[in-house]
Write a protein that binds this DNA or RNA. Structure first.
Lengths: 68, 68
DNA sequence: ACATAATGTCAACTATACTTTACATTAAAC
DNA sequence: GTTTAATGTAAAGTATAGTTGACATTATGT
């Protein structure tokens, strides 16, 4: 199980829209939405692009939650 | 494009075998091998488990390489 | 109230991560 | 040189990441 803070980080980073963030990391808006809503966890490649764009670290953005 | 140092980190971390590392992060040996040989890039979830087990960070273990 | 931008959601599809099984090659131990 | 552990490789199958398109809902602005 994994939780993420990308919605928070996206807002913090100058109120980026899902679309704007998607453009910057070269993915679709729906992909951003799906990640934010916990529908799926991205590849480490996309996670790195997100953390780079949002000026933070993967560890800060994504956290392992115990219990399976 | 992405490159990783998990083979290096695995050796550094007390000469773990692929199988031992796989067990510790709950995946198959072939998954470790495929990642080490660049055949595929893992999910951020597995990347986090790997970095935790190898006592390093995702950013240290996986690096974005430019050019596509 | 109306228009528009942003977000939520759904379905169908494609791409790829990951598993399992199985076998072949290389390295290490004796 | 033979056995055994470790690694390389490959195929078939399953799960899930990610795309595109389309539409519905919720803000925001005027």
């Amino acid at each position: 199980m994994i939780i993420n803070k990308i919605k928070l980080a996206r807002i913090a980073k100058g109120d980026l829209t899902q679309q704007q963030l998607a453009d910057k990391v070269s993915c679709s808006r729906q992909t951003i939405h799906s990640i934010e809503s916990g529908k799926f966890v991205p590849s480490v490649e996309l996670a790195l692009r997100l953390s780079r764009e949002l000026e933070t670290t993967v560890e800060e953005l994504f956290k392992l939650e115990e219990e399976k």
